[in-house]
Amino acid sequence: MEVRTIKVFTTVDNINLHTQVVDMSMTYGQQFGPTYLDGADVTKIKPHNSHEGKTFYVLPNDDTLRVEAFEYYHTTDPSFLGRYMSALNHTKKWKYPQVNGLTSIKWADNNCYLATALLTLQQIELKFNPPALQDAYYRARAGEAANFCALILAYCNKTVGELGDVRETMSYLFQHANLDSCKRVLNVVCKTCGQQQTTLKGVEAVMYMGTLSYEQFKKGVQIPCTCGKQATKYLVQQESPFVMMSAPPAQYELKHGTFTCASEYTGNYQCGHYKHITSKETLYCIDGALLTKSSEYKGPITDVFYKENSYTTTIK
C-alpha cells in the first residue's frame, strides 16, 4: 500500500517557510505537534488534498525554529505562539472599519479597549522592536488589523473576551517599542525636605499616572512627601515624541487643539466601556464603527496623549 502524501510549508514567522512532505494517514499533531492554519487549530486533523502548498504555523520545537521565533517575536515564552494563534482565530472574524481616516474595530468580545489602543497607536510616533509587531502594525494602518490585535493580546497575556485596560495595554506595548531616546527629568520640591531631581528613561519617561493635564504637570502637581507634608512635583525636561497622561476616570474637559487623542471610560472596574476622542479640525468621538463630532467635550476621561518633541522648564 502506497503512502499518500502532500507537500506543505511549516513556519513560526510566515517569513521562513520549511518544506514538509506530510503523510495523509496521520494527523498534523502526530507529525508536527500543535499546528495552526489561519489561526485555526488543526492539530487533530489529517492532511487533505486542499492543504497542498498551504502554510501551517507550528510551535518552535527545534533550534532553527526557536531562533526564527525569537528573532521575529522577541520572546522565548513557549506558550506565546499558541496564544497568538488562538487569538487570531477570533480577531480574523472582527470587522476593521476605516473611521475618520483611522483603522478602528467594530465592537465584539469586549474589544473596546483594543480599538482605543489601536486608534491611539496610529496617532503617536512609535516604532516597535519585534519585527512581528512592526509588520502587523503597518498592515493594521492599511486596514488589516487582525494579526496586530492578536499579537497585542498575546504580548499582554490576554484572551479574547476578557476586559482590558488601555493604560495597561499601552504599557505592555511600550515595553516592546523603541523608547531608548526618551528621557524625563522631574523635580520634587518640599518646604521641609528641599528639592530632589529624578531622571527617568524609556517607558517611565512617557507615562504618568495622577493627572490628565500635561500643562498642569509642567506647572506642578501636589504629591505627598515622605515627611508627610505636601510637596510639588513638576516637569523639568521632556525628550520624547509623545507623552501619555493618565488618571482614574473623572469628568474632564478636553479643549480642541490642546491634545492629540484621549480615552474615555464609562462604567466601573468590573464592567465598563471605552471610547476614543481625537482632536482634528474639530473633536471626534470614535466608538467602534461609530463616529460623532463636537466642538467641545466633557466626560469621564482616563488617558490623554500629547505630541511632544523637546521641553525644558522655565521655572527657576
Rank of each mutant, 00 (worst) to 15 (best):
residue 3 V to Q: 14
residue 4 R to L: 14
residue 13 D to C: 03
residue 14 N to A: 03
residue 15 I to R: 13
residue 17 L to H: 14
residue 18 H to N: 08
residue 18 H to Y: 06
residue 20 Q to F: 11
residue 20 Q to G: 10
residue 24 M to S: 14
residue 28 Y to H: 08
residue 30 Q to E: 13
residue 31 Q to F: 14
residue 32 F to S: 07
residue 33 G to K: 08
residue 33 G to H: 12
residue 34 P to Y: 08
residue 36 Y to T: 03
residue 38 D to S: 11
residue 41 D to W: 03
residue 46 K to N: 12
residue 48 H to K: 13
residue 50 S to R: 11
residue 57 Y to I: 11
residue 59 L to M: 11
residue 59 L to F: 11
residue 61 N to R: 11
residue 65 L to T: 12
residue 67 V to M: 14
residue 67 V to E: 12
residue 71 E to H: 10
residue 73 Y to I: 09
residue 73 Y to R: 05
residue 78 P to I: 09
residue 78 P to R: 00
residue 78 P to Y: 10
residue 80 F to W: 07
residue 83 R to Q: 08
residue 85 M to K: 12
residue 85 M to H: 07
residue 86 S to L: 09
residue 91 T to P: 06
residue 92 K to N: 11
residue 96 Y to F: 12
residue 97 P to H: 06
residue 107 W to L: 04
residue 108 A to I: 06
residue 108 A to N: 07
residue 109 D to L: 06
residue 119 L to P: 01
residue 127 K to W: 04
residue 127 K to Q: 15
residue 130 P to H: 03
residue 130 P to F: 04
residue 131 P to I: 07
residue 132 A to R: 10
residue 138 Y to T: 13
residue 139 R to A: 14
residue 139 R to Q: 15
residue 143 G to V: 04
residue 148 F to V: 07
residue 155 Y to C: 00
residue 160 V to E: 03
residue 161 G to L: 00
residue 161 G to W: 07
residue 163 L to M: 11
residue 165 D to R: 04
residue 166 V to L: 07
residue 173 L to I: 11
residue 178 N to L: 07
residue 184 R to F: 07
residue 184 R to L: 02
residue 191 K to D: 11
residue 192 T to I: 11
residue 199 T to I: 13
residue 200 L to W: 01
residue 205 A to Y: 00
residue 207 M to W: 03
residue 212 L to H: 00
residue 213 S to Y: 08
residue 216 Q to P: 02
residue 217 F to C: 02
residue 229 K to L: 11
residue 230 Q to D: 12
residue 230 Q to F: 14
residue 232 T to M: 13
residue 232 T to A: 04
residue 233 K to T: 11
residue 233 K to E: 14
residue 240 S to W: 01
residue 241 P to H: 06
residue 245 M to Q: 05
residue 251 Q to P: 14
residue 251 Q to Y: 12
residue 252 Y to L: 08
residue 253 E to C: 08
residue 254 L to S: 02
residue 266 T to R: 02
residue 267 G to Y: 08
residue 269 Y to C: 07
residue 274 Y to G: 01
residue 277 I to A: 00
residue 281 E to I: 00
residue 281 E to N: 00
residue 282 T to A: 11
residue 283 L to V: 12
residue 284 Y to A: 05
residue 284 Y to P: 01
residue 284 Y to I: 09
residue 286 I to E: 04
residue 288 G to R: 01
residue 288 G to A: 08
residue 290 L to P: 01
residue 290 L to T: 12
residue 292 T to Q: 08
residue 299 G to N: 02
residue 302 T to N: 00
residue 304 V to F: 05
residue 304 V to K: 03
residue 306 Y to Q: 11
residue 308 E to G: 04
residue 308 E to Y: 00
residue 308 E to W: 00
residue 312 T to I: 11
residue 312 T to A: 09
